[in-house]
């Protein structure tokens, strides 16, 4: 609690918030002047977002979020349901474009390039920033065709042998090769849930993205499949930059370098993962990770 007390001096509304934490009702805290505490920015940023607001029609879902994702970093985003972490993640490769009423403002850059520039073509952006979804969503095609889908539509290969190689390496890196190498032409929907999710990861890395966004990739999986995916994330971080949204705090603690805590559409705290889970700077973060709400 002393660490929190130090930080309250810096932030205007902290006294109110602390009171609320003590009253066990932090949801009612006045967040209008909240500023992000910790280290949201990075010197070696792959993606950098400033003052991001997201609206669904008249409703504002994200309020002025500023955050960097460092090169080859695993950034975890945690927070109670409806706090906007998935919405924020989906802004990073413009998946929110598919929702008509969704409007994004602010500056979002991938290596210095504005990704919401109206002149920018969204197709190569999504090839560079891949996404893995909450529910495994293999296409109703064979395992091979699922992985080959991306390379094919982007014209990455000209010969069958090259495609075979990409499929094999992608499946190997997703840790699925040994399980499916004998039935590459069986339907992808016939795999188990965990295998399907690894197939989706293989499908994503087959187009060699630079950033992989993962939206609660393990929420539909059992603990063993989850452990495999977490292992995979650790390996993938050698080559990719990863942003992962998760409801499991243990998972965030296990896989990430930095953790961002979202609350009611605002970014409350970003810090080294270890610090967030042992000694958070903000009382709201502490309340969340100690299970007082959320």
């Amino acid at each position: 609690m002393e660490a929190i007390a130090e930080n309250t001096a810096k932030v205007d509304n902290m006294i109110d918030t602390k009171k609320d934490v003590q009253n066990n009702s932090p949801e009612s805290a006045d967040l209008s002047n909240l500023e992000t505490v910790g280290i949201p920015f990075s010197d070696n940023a792959k993606m950098s977002m400033r003052d991001v607001d997201v609206f669904y029609g008249d409703k504002q879902a994200i309020h002025g979020v500023g955050l960097d994702i460092g090169q080859n970093e695993v950034l975890a985003m945690i927070g109670p349901s409806g706090c906007g972490k998935s919405t924020f993640l989906r802004c990073l490769n413009r998946m929110n474009d598919t929702i008509d009423i969704c409007k994004v403002t602010g500056s979002l850059q991938l290596e210095g390039q504005d990704i919401y520039d109206p002149k920018l073509d969204v197709v190569p952006l999504r090839a560079r920033v891949g996404m893995v979804f909450q529910k495994p969503n293999p296409f109703p095609k064979s395992i091979y065709d699922n992985v080959a889908y991306g390379p094919r539509i982007h014209g990455l290969v000209s010969r069958r042998a090259e495609l075979d190689e990409i499929v094999e390496t992608s499946l190997q890196r997703a840790g699925l090769w040994n399980e499916v190498k004998d039935r590459l032409h069986a339907p992808g929907t016939g795999l188990s849930g965990g295998q399907q999710q690894r197939l989706c990861i293989a499908r994503t890395i087959a187009v060699s993205p630079e950033v992989i966004l993962m939206d609660e990739p393990c929420s539909a999986l059992d603990p063993i499949a989850t452990a495999k995916i977490e292992e995979l994330i650790a390996e993938l971080s050698e080559n990719f930059t990863i942003a992962i949204v998760t409801h499991s705090m243990q998972q965030a603690a296990r896989v990430s370098n930095r953790t961002a805590y979202f609350h009611l559409g605002k970014l409350v705290e970003v810090n080294e993962t270890e610090k967030v889970f042992t000694n958070p700077d903000h009382s709201l973060t502490e309340a969340y990770i100690t299970g007082r709400f959320g």
Binding site: N93, V123, R128, M131, F133, N137, Y149, V207
Partner: peptide
């Protein structure tokens, strides 16, 4: 057809 399939395809950068 589930929206998740469309999302999966769009997320890979297909038009």
């Amino acid at each position: 057809v589930p929206q998740s399939l469309r999302d999966g395809s769009l997320g890979l950068g297909s038009t």
